[in-house]
Simulated scan of single mutants.
Amino acid sequence: MNETARTAPAEMPTETSHVGPRPGRPEIVAGLAAYGLLYAGVICYLTHANLPGAASGVVEFSLSAAMGLGAFAVAALLRIRRLAPFGVRRASGRSLLAAIGFGVLAYLLSAIVSLLYQTLTGDHRNIQTGYHSAAAGGMLWYLATAVTGFVATPIGEEFLFRGVLANALSRYGAPISVLVSATIFALVHGINPVLPVAFVVGVINALLLRRTGSVWPGVVVHGVNNGLAISLPVLAALATN
């Protein structure tokens, strides 16, 4: 092993480390362009699909996962064609366990910033009614929501927005990597009460990527946040009935 590889920060792979070259500008452009095209196709489909409430939530989560994974695949296959440089590599059990706590923290912080956003803007839209309907549709619908929304969607979005985007931007320093990737992640969720939630999750997960070198702790944080955000309102509604 050469001197550069021995002294490079463990959390962010470098051009000369054992995981190979990091993603860069080509991967950012390819990944975001692919995501934009997939996003447009999904919006067109959902506009004309007229899905019932419970089905719409599961379908939307499934499409979110597919968009992230599809765009990630385009970026990863462009030139690097290995998963480790994108942070898709093993994380320690300790990191994954800590990520559960960070997921709860993300949910609490997100609830606060979303409330502030709604207070300041007067925008009280609930754009997640389909997700809540799916989770409240019975055990099978809840399990489908959990698989697509608490597992698949976090994997797809973390692979793209942290594995590609935050990793590629890391060459410009931590502030750019964390804040720009989190901002783009927030904006793709639209200008609505979910935007500040996505920004908080994006910041926490980009920091975890820098700390651990792996996207998997961020997947756990994302999954816990989604699980709490979708499940708690459903449980509260059941408790009042």
Rank of each mutant, 00 (worst) to 15 (best):
L165W: 12
V180H: 06
L169R: 14
N167T: 14
V188F: 07
S177H: 14
F199N: 02
A174G: 10
N192P: 02
V188E: 12
L140T: 12
V164C: 07
V194G: 03
G202L: 02
L160T: 01
I184G: 05
P154T: 06
F161T: 06
L140N: 10
A152G: 03
A146F: 14
F199E: 07
F150S: 14
V178I: 15
W141K: 07
S181D: 09
G163M: 08
V200D: 13
L187K: 09
F185P: 04
A136Y: 00
I176G: 15
A146D: 04
L143E: 04
G149Q: 07
P154S: 05
N167E: 06
F161Q: 02
Y172G: 13
N167D: 11
V201C: 15
R171C: 06
Y172M: 07
V147S: 00
H189A: 02
S177K: 11
P175D: 03
P196Y: 05
A198H: 00
A174F: 07
L195K: 00
V201A: 02
M139S: 14
A152V: 12
V197W: 00
R162A: 06
F150G: 10
G202E: 03
R171M: 13
L169Y: 07
A174L: 15
I155M: 11
L165H: 01
R171Q: 08
G156D: 02
F159A: 06
E158D: 09
V197A: 09
A168H: 11
H189Q: 03
A166G: 06
H189P: 10
V188C: 03
V147K: 03
V200W: 02
V194Y: 08
V178F: 06
G190E: 08
G202R: 08
G173L: 06
T145G: 05
F185A: 01
A182F: 11
P196I: 00
V164L: 06
W141G: 08
F159M: 10
G202V: 12
F159G: 13
A136R: 04
V180W: 07
M139I: 15
W141M: 15
H189Y: 01
L143Y: 09
G137S: 07
I191V: 03
S170W: 13
E158K: 04
G190P: 02
A182T: 05
G138H: 08
A186N: 02
G190Y: 08
P154I: 15
T148E: 07
Y172T: 13
P154V: 00
F150Y: 05
P193V: 11
G163Q: 07
I184L: 15
I176M: 11
P196E: 02
Y142F: 12
A174E: 05
E157D: 05
A136E: 05
G156P: 08
V178M: 11
A144C: 10
E158H: 05
A186M: 04
A136G: 05
